[in-house]
C-alpha cells in the first residue's frame, strides 16, 4: 500500500516523468524512436519529449507531417520490422484519423500473423479546454479492442513506471496522459522501477466505501474524500492505472471488502469502461454488495468550449460525494 506522495519543487512534473522514462529506455534500446508533430523544437505540446531530440538526435525524435494514418502506419510497419516506436498523436482525438491503422491493423497483427507489434501510441487525453475536438475520452473504445492495452496514469510516478513497462512490451499500447495533470509534480521511480499493467494503486485506504477510478478523476476523488471525511465517511480510492489489462483482482477484493462502491471517470457513461467494471463486478460479487454499484461519468454529449458548460458535463468532486453518500445509504 502506498499513499499520495507529498510534492516538492524538486520533483518532476507528470510530463517530465514521461521524458525520464523514455530517456532511460532509449539509452538501453537503440531501436526506440519517437515520431510525432512538433517534437524536436517544441518538445511536444505538453513538453512530454522536451530536450530528447537534442540529446538523441533527429533520427530518433522525428518531426512528422500532420498525417495521423501515416504516423500510425509508420509505427506499425517499423514495429513489425523490429523497432519499438513511440507514435505521439498529440491529442487522442486525432487518433480518429488513424483508426484503421490502430484497430484493424496494429491490434490484429499478432493474432493473425503471430508477429509482435511493439508499438506505443501516446496522446494527451481527458476533458479540459479546447472543445469538442480536443476532449474526447476514447479509452473505452481502445480497451474494447482485442490486442490493445491501455494506460491511463494519474501521477508522475505511474507515468514513468508505466511507459518503461510499455517500452519493454511486445504489444501495442495506447498511452493516455491527462492534459490537466501535465504540470503536476510528484516523486518518480528510478531506472529499475517498472509498473506492471493490470495492477491498480490504492491511493488512499478507507473503512466505509470505495471509489474506483483513473486519470484526473482521481484528483476529484481525493477532494471528495476530504469532504466526506469531514462528514465522518472514510472512503477508499483505487486508481486503476491501466484499463486493459484491468486489475480485476483488486476490483473484486474492493467490492467484497466494502459492498459499497462507486466507479467514476469523465467519459460519457453510455457504453463506457465504468459500465464494464460495474457489470462484471456485480456479476462476480453480487452477494457481497450492499446495493448497486453506482457509476459517475459524463453526459452523452460533445464537450463544449465554454469552461462552465464543459465542467458541467463531467463529474465534479461534489458528484462523487453524492455518489458515495448514495452507496452509504444502502
Amino acid at each position: 500500500m502506498s499513499t499520495t506522495t507529498p510534492t516538492t519543487q524538486q520533483n518532476p512534473t507528470y510530463s517530465e516523468a514521461f521524458q525520464s522514462g523514455v530517456r532511460e529506455e532509449m539509452k538501453l534500446n537503440p531501436n526506440i524512436f519517437i515520431l510525432g508533430t512538433d517534437l524536436v523544437e517544441r518538445g511536444g505540446h505538453f513538453a512530454q519529449v522536451k530536450g530528447i531530440a537534442q540529446e538523441f538526435g533527429v533520427d530518433r525524435v522525428k518531426d512528422s507531417p500532420i498525417s495521423e494514418a501515416a504516423m500510425v502506419a509508420a509505427g506499425l510497419g517499423s514495429a513489425m520490422y523490429g523497432c519499438h516506436p513511440i507514435i505521439d498523436l498529440n491529442f487522442i482525438d486525432f487518433s480518429l484519423g488513424a483508426m484503421d491503422e490502430i484497430i484493424n491493423q496494429a491490434a490484429k497483427i499478432r493474432f493473425m500473423f503471430n508477429r509482435p507489434v511493439p508499438l506505443v501510441i501516446r496522446a494527451t487525453s481527458g476533458v479540459a479546454l479546447g472543445g469538442a475536438h480536443h476532449c474526447n475520452s476514447l479509452e473505452s473504445l481502445f480497451a474494447h479492442t482485442a490486442g490493445l492495452s491501455v494506460a491511463v496514469p494519474s501521477r508522475a510516478y505511474d507515468v514513468k513506471g508505466l511507459i518503461k513497462t510499455a517500452l519493454r512490451s511486445p504489444d501495442p499500447v495506447i498511452f493516455l496522459m491527462h492534459k490537466k495533470l501535465s504540470g503536476v509534480r510528484g516523486e518518480i521511480g528510478d531506472e529499475n522501477t517498472f509498473i506492471p499493467f493490470g495492477s491498480a494503486h490504492r491511493v488512499k485506504s478507507g473503512k466505509d466505501a470505495a471509489i474506483i477510478s483513473y486519470g484526473y478523476t482521481i484528483v476529484s476523488a481525493q477532494k471528495a474524500a476530504q469532504t466526506l471525511a469531514e462528514q465522518g465517511i472514510d472512503v477508499e480510492i483505487i486508481d486503476l492505472r491501466t484499463l486493459y489489462p484491468l486489475d480485476t483482482d483488486t476490483i473484486n477484493a474492493t467490492v467484497q471488502k466494502f459492498g459499497r462502491v462507486v466507479v467514476a471517470d469523465e467519459a460519457p457513461m453510455f457504453g463506457s469502461i465504468t459500465a464494464e467494471i460495474a457489470a462484471t463486478a456485480s456479476e462476480v460479487n453480487f452477494r457481497h454488495l450492499k446495493g448497486p454499484i453506482v457509476r459517475v461519468g459524463a453526459a452523452r454529449a460533445p464537450l463544449s468550449a465554454n469552461p462552465q458548460m464543459s465542467e458541467a458535463a463531467i463529474p465534479s468532486a461534489n458528484d462523487l460525494v453524492e455518489a458515495v453518500k448514495k452507496v452509504m445509504s444502502y
Binding site: A69, A70, V72, A73, A74, G75, L76, G77, S78, A79, M80, Y81, G82, C83, E101, Q105
Partner: peptide, 10 residues
C-alpha cells in the same frame, strides 16, 4: 502504409 513503416524500420 505498412510497407512505408517497414521502410522506416529498415
Amino acid at each position: 502504409g505498412i510497407a512505408m513503416g517497414a521502410a522506416l524500420g529498415i
